[in-house]
Design a protein around this nucleic acid. Structure first.
Length: 288
DNA sequence: AATCATCCCTGACCGC
DNA sequence: TGCGGTCAGGGATGAT
């Protein structure tokens, strides 16, 4: 599933391909996936029409990322926010829809015809969504933007910040890292990988971590995210880069997807346990 | 305010 | 072969 490194790679790909292009036409095949300001669960055909009206003719002027959200900014100040959730994909083709042999798959839900090419939004499980906002202020009030913590690769994310974010938190460290409010952009894969690297058991309460452990976890998060971005992300499941290629970090996973196998550090058998509603894999011997 | 449970959805997999 | 059941998971939302 796309997490920070995957979304960041996609952002970079989009920056190269769609910046400066104008949206000529939008085709929405599944209205449920688009919405605008207000309650995300209230999507409708009316909202889909509004989405089309609002963004057709707009020129893409900037590509940003915040946590796992992709943000298209337009010259006019309007904004399109996309969250891929479990299985969303953006695929770009340097052709017009009519010249692409198989322009639509079974899971292609939204198509943007741009001035020079075509951008497809595919999503098997349809958890993802695309939201439009008239301006920055409206975006700031939106649910996906409220209560998001610091970007772990920004200057704002310091050891002191991280320490404060964990202080007095009675929830377990795994749930806290998944929650986005302490650190932005971590999901199930990198949370497990970071906790393994820092030798911390995922069930530990955040407030129980010693200063040394907090520091180790802080460093592990940064190191793993940086490395993964360089490798193009992890292609587990349906994640693809903009040109449909896969990232290569999946080969590097030390614990994710390795339940029952041997710990690469101490040789003990890795165990799997549901924590915070997610399958969590860790080493019962060397993660204390 | 903080924490927790539920729900959305499809494909893969398993046992019969 | 087909069918039903189970699982996977991010995070908005509503309940406690």
């Amino acid at each position: 599933m796309p997490e920070l490194p995957e979304v960041e790679n996609l952002r970079r790909g989009l920056e190269k391909k769609v910046l400066g292009q104008k949206i000529k036409k939008i085709i929405i095949r599944r209205a449920k996936l688009v919405s605008g300001p207000g309650n995300l669960r209230v999507a409708s055909k009316k909202k889909a029409k509004e989405f089309i009206r609002s963004l057709t003719g707009e020129t893409i002027s900037r590509m940003d990322r915040r946590a796992k959200n992709l943000i298209f900014r337009f010259k006019s100040g309007k904004i399109l926010l996309a969250h891929l959730k479990m299985s969303g994909q953006f695929i770009y083709k340097d052709d017009k829809p009519f010249s692409i042999k198989t322009p639509e798959g079974k899971h292609t839900h939204i198509i943007f015809e741009l001035s020079k090419g075509t951008l497809f939004y595919n999503d098997i499980r349809t958890f993802g969504y695309l939201l439009y906002f008239p301006n920055e202020q409206a975006l700031g009030k939106a649910a996906p933007f409220k209560d998001i913590g610091s970007e772990p690769l920004s200057a704002e994310f310091t050891p002191e910040y991280f320490c404060r974010a964990l202080k007095n938190k009675k929830t377990n460290i795994k749930a806290l890292l998944l929650g986005q409010s302490a650190v932005a952009g971590l999901g199930n894969i990198y949370t497990d990988e970071a906790l393994f690297a820092a030798r911390i058991r995922p069930t530990r309460l955040a407030l129980s971590l010693k200063p040394k452990e907090v520091n180790n976890l802080y460093s592990a998060i940064k190191k793993i995210l940086l490395k993964t971005i360089q490798l193009g992300g992890s292609s587990v499941d349906t994640y693809r880069l903009l040109d449909e290629s896969r990232g290569s970090f999946a080969k590097e996973h030390k614990v994710y997807g390795r339940a029952g196998e041997k710990c690469l550090r101490c040789g003990s058998q890795l165990i799997s346990k549901k924590i915070a509603g997610r399958t969590t894999v860790y080493c019962p011997n060397c993660q204390k």
